Simulated assay, not measured.
Amino acid sequence: MTAEADRKIRVLIVDDSAAVRTTLSDIIAADPELEVMGTAADPYIAVERIRGEVPDVIFLDIELPRMDGITFLRKLMSQRPIPVVICSAHASEGSDTLIEALEAGAVDVVPKPRLDTAQFLQDSRERICSAARLAAQASLKGRVRPPAPKLNVERKLTADAVIPPRSAARAASALATTPLTDPLVCIGASTGGTEALRDVLVELPATTPGILIVQHMPERFTAAFARRLDGLCQMRVKEAEDGDAVEPGCVLIAPGGHHMVLHRTGARYTVRVIDGPHVSRHRPSVDVLFRSAAYGAGRNALGVLLTGMGDDGARGLLEMREAGAATLAQDEDSSVVFGMPKEAIALGAAQKVVGLRRIAHEITAYAARAPMRDPA
Rank of each mutant, 00 (worst) to 15 (best):
A5V: 06
K8N: 03
I9T: 06
I13V: 15
V14W: 07
D16M: 12
T22V: 05
L24Q: 00
I27K: 00
I28H: 07
A30M: 10
D31M: 01
E33F: 03
E33P: 06
V36P: 00
V36Y: 11
D42F: 10
L64A: 06
M67V: 08
I70S: 07
R74L: 07
S78F: 04
R80H: 14
E103N: 08
A106V: 12
V109C: 00
L115N: 12
D123K: 15
E126Y: 04
P149I: 09
L151N: 01
V153S: 02
S167V: 09
A169R: 09
A176Q: 01
T178G: 09
D182C: 07
D182A: 07
L184Q: 05
G193K: 04
L201C: 06
V202G: 05
M217C: 05
F221G: 09
A223M: 09
A223S: 14
F225C: 10
A226Q: 01
A226C: 06
C233L: 13
V237Q: 13
K238C: 11
K238F: 11
E239K: 04
D242E: 05
G243F: 06
D244N: 01
E247W: 08
P248H: 03
V251Q: 13
A254C: 09
R268Q: 13
T270G: 04
P284M: 05
R291C: 05
A293F: 02
N300W: 08
G310R: 02
G313W: 08
G316L: 12
E322K: 01
A325C: 08
D333Y: 06
D333G: 07
V337E: 02
P341A: 00
P341W: 01
E343P: 00
A344F: 02
T364H: 14
A365E: 15
R369V: 09
D374M: 11
A376I: 07
